[in-house]
């Protein structure tokens, strides 16, 4: 589970690595200092270039929510962060990263860059699976054009932005809920590659889910 949220720990946040003996007050102050640093860093704008060539500006801390971008920036070994701003835009070489998708992704990380990290002290925070999406996220991800929605999810996955993939996944699964298989196939445009016999066999296999008491 920890691996799944490596995003937060790679940014050196929180008490994850701290020994439990750490003075708690320092803990809080350290966090505070780190937060201020993140805030400052986010004022530095970097440029991201979509697969279609569009260039979008994004705060540094926000951009680093993409593990891929963070790794690329690390590889630059640039100590003076302000110089990053003047560099060439970072190209995102995946056809899902369209102009529209990248614009939305920048909007998302701009809203979420100051989210508190996962708290390793509590089991239930390792698992955000069952948490409902915030209103903002719901509005953000309610995109009429399904192709665009899938672009965003695929692009976020490519850029390794766990939180945004999660938002997309929850949105899709919420939409599926309660629908018949045919409806889901229709909605998500899934090609049924089963023969009718194969499909019937699967239904039989899963009869238990319809059991009533």
């Amino acid at each position: 589970m920890n691996g799944e949220y490596s995003l937060d720990t790679t940014e050196g946040m929180a008490a994850s690595g701290d020994p439990p003996t750490n003075n708690a007050v320092d803990d809080y102050d350290a966090e505070e200092a780190l937060e201020r640093q993140r805030e400052e860093e986010n004022k530095i704008k970097i440029k991201l270039k979509s697969f279609e060539g569009g260039v979008y500006e994004c705060g540094l801390t926000a951009a680093k929510m993409s593990v891929m971008v963070a790794n690329m920036l690390d590889a630059l070994q640039e100590t003076d962060l302000t110089k990053i701003a003047t560099r060439e835009p970072i190209p995102l070489q995946n056809d899902a990263v369209t102009n529209k998708a990248l614009e939305k992704i920048v909007e998302w990380v701009d809203h979420h860059w100051d989210d508190p990290p996962i708290d390793p002290d509590f089991d239930d925070e390792k698992e955000r699976r069952n948490e409902e999406l915030s209103h903002w996220d719901k509005q953000f991800i309610d995109i009429a054009d399904q192709g665009e929605l899938f672009d965003i999810i695929a692009a976020a996955n490519f850029m390794d932005i766990k939180g945004l993939v999660e938002v997309g996944a929850k949105h899709i699964c919420n939409k599926i809920k309660g629908k018949s298989c045919t409806e889901v196939r229709e909605m998500l445009k899934i090609h049924n590659d089963f023969t009718p016999e194969e499909e019937a066999a699967i239904h039989k296999e899963n009869e238990w889910i319809y059991a009533k008491d």
Binding site: V165, A169, I176, K177, C181, V184, R185, N192, H203, I209
Partner: peptide
């Protein structure tokens, strides 16, 4: 993406 489905739905939609 599909891991966010409920357990039962994940079996229900196996046939898609």
């Amino acid at each position: 993406v599909l891991s966010y489905l409920s357990l039962k739905d994940s079996f229900r939609y196996e046939c898609l």
